[in-house]
């Protein structure tokens, strides 16, 4: 099975690989995995509390090329979006952008799950802080 040029590009030059301090109250961390293929994906967002805009996103994925490309693309899309906009990102958009074949659709689902997990983690942390303010 041939990977699309975009997948190869993200695989060879993954964007935003790395990690942020998960204890930072403005950082949300999403860790998801797919037991079937052994993939594990960590995706983090850093949110500007004043604007609610995601100012940085990092990921680290152990898995196939499509899983790496899906999460790499996800971090590109996340930057500059508000948390609510980010919540709207659908796996089908990732599938279309990367031209993923049906057998690799689950990689995009994993990326969407990682985004949602990161946002939920951020919100969970942010709520008590706002109550105190």
């Amino acid at each position: 099975m041939a990977y699309s040029d975009k997948v190869v590009d993200h695989y060879n030059n993954p964007r935003n690989v790395g990690s942020m301090d998960k204890n930072d109250p403005h950082v949300g961390t999403g860790m998801v995995g797919a037991p079937e293929c052994g993939d594990v994906m960590k995706l983090q967002i850093k949110v500007d509390p004043a604007t609610g805009i995601i100012e940085d996103a990092k990921f680290k994925t152990f898995g196939c090329g499509s899983a790496i490309a899906s999460s790499s693309l996800a971090t590109e899309w996340l930057k500059g979006k508000t948390v609510d906009q980010a919540m709207e990102i659908k796996n089908t958009e990732i599938v279309n952008e990367l031209a993923l074949p049906p057998v690799k659709v689950h990689c995009s689902v994993l990326a969407e799950d990682a985004i949602k997990a990161a946002i939920n983690d951020y919100k969970k942390k942010a709520v008590p802080a706002e109550v105190n303010a």
Binding site: M31, P35, V40
Partner: peptide, 20 residues
């Protein structure tokens, strides 16, 4: 056996990640 089952405890994911 379907790709998409994600019924895995978070602690295990952490361990899997660290090991990787």
């Amino acid at each position: 056996g379907e790709q998409g089952t994600k019924d895995v405890p978070p602690e295990l994911l952490e361990e899997v990640f660290e090991l990787n």
